[in-house]
Simulated assay, not measured.
Amino acid sequence: MNDFTNCPQLYKYRAIDLLPEPPSIDAERGKLIHSVLEDIFELPAADRTFESAVDLLPESWSAQLEKTPELNALVLDEKEWMDRAQALLTNYFSLENPTTFEPTYRELHLERNISDEVYLHGYVDRLDIAPTGEVRIVDYKTGKSPKPGWEDKALFQLRVYALLYWQNHGVLPRMLKLIYLGDVKTIESQPTEAQLTSTEKKLNNIGSEILTAIETGHFPTRKSKLCDWCFFKAICPAHVK
């Protein structure tokens, strides 16, 4: 859905045509950090330290290289790569103390049919349920936080998760939390029923637009600054004359 709203043509390349893309160095760094932050909660609370997180890095990195061997050609300086990963973990531990709480779910799969023709699903990085029942949805980002005025767009993903959880479990999450490790910032929001109802309407609208595009075969391009990072720019009608 993010791809379609950013550029319907990009959605077509990825979701309809299923064109292959090379691994993204930033995305792969994110996967590495996410893996470590998931695994550290396997340890007893007292052992969830920065040093333990760093100790998990080599094994997580080896598993990632085995799964995506193309990374060997992308990561030319492994020491620099690992130093950057350690810096991001340092930033995480300055924002949260994982020894003080127990996460209820990690990589929680949420799913629901939002219409007869549209199935929606996603994976939540972490979902915490307090002893008193309050639900907190947490998402890690290894990049930098959005510029002022763009926070609402960043929170859309978590509102979708909140909507799915609310619809499936009948509990309105109390807190949405985005953790940005790139610049050591967090964004928090307390979702309301009105916000999540609005999110559901937006999802249905996007779903209808996707179905119309599939039926008509019309996936318009949408030029923006994001084009400079798009692998498909070389074949995109907006850039190929």
Rank of each mutant, 00 (worst) to 15 (best):
T100G: 06
G133A: 02
L19G: 03
V75P: 08
N168F: 05
Y140W: 12
A45G: 07
L32D: 04
L56E: 02
Y180W: 09
L43A: 08
F50T: 05
N168E: 14
T192D: 02
P131T: 02
L196K: 04
M1F: 13
A234W: 04
E70T: 08
D139T: 01
E78G: 08
V160F: 07
K79L: 11
N113L: 09
E151W: 06
Q190Y: 00
I187K: 00
G170T: 06
V135F: 01
K202T: 11
I25H: 00
A15V: 03
E66D: 11
K223P: 11
A194S: 05
T221Q: 12
A53P: 03
V135D: 01
L108T: 05
R106G: 13
M1L: 14
L57M: 11
D39W: 03
W61V: 03
I33C: 07
A85P: 09
Q190M: 05
E188Y: 01
M82R: 15
N91L: 08
A154Q: 10
Y140T: 09
V124H: 05
G149E: 10
R84G: 13
G143F: 06
K153D: 12
T68C: 07
V171H: 05
F101S: 09
D228Q: 12
K185M: 02
E21Q: 14
P98Q: 10
T68K: 09
H239A: 01
K12Y: 13
P103H: 05
T132I: 00
I214M: 12
F41L: 12
I129A: 00
K31M: 09
I129K: 10
L57H: 01
D116R: 15
T197I: 08
A87Y: 11
S24N: 13
I25M: 04
K31R: 13
T100K: 14
D152S: 14
V240S: 05
Y105A: 08
Y140Q: 01
K223V: 15
E38T: 13
P44Q: 06
E21T: 11
K225V: 12
N6W: 10
R112L: 13
I214K: 15
H169E: 12
L32A: 02
P103C: 03
W81E: 15
E70I: 01
V160D: 02
K202E: 14
D152H: 11
K185W: 00
R126N: 01
G143W: 02
P98E: 07
P20N: 04
K144Q: 11
K201Y: 06
K201G: 11
G149Y: 06
A27H: 07
I187N: 00
C7S: 08
S208R: 14
T186Q: 15
R174W: 07
N204M: 14
A130P: 00
R126L: 07
E38D: 13
G133N: 03
C236R: 08
L181P: 02
V138H: 00
D83P: 10
W229R: 14
L226E: 07
L181F: 03
N6R: 15
E21I: 04
A85I: 10
F101Q: 09
T68E: 12
R174C: 02
L56C: 05
Y165V: 07
E38Y: 11
T192V: 02
T197Y: 03
T132S: 08
T99H: 04
N113P: 04
H121Q: 12
E200T: 01
L110K: 05
P131M: 01
H239R: 01
Q167G: 00
E209S: 15
R84N: 14
P98S: 09
G122K: 08
A85S: 15
E70Q: 15
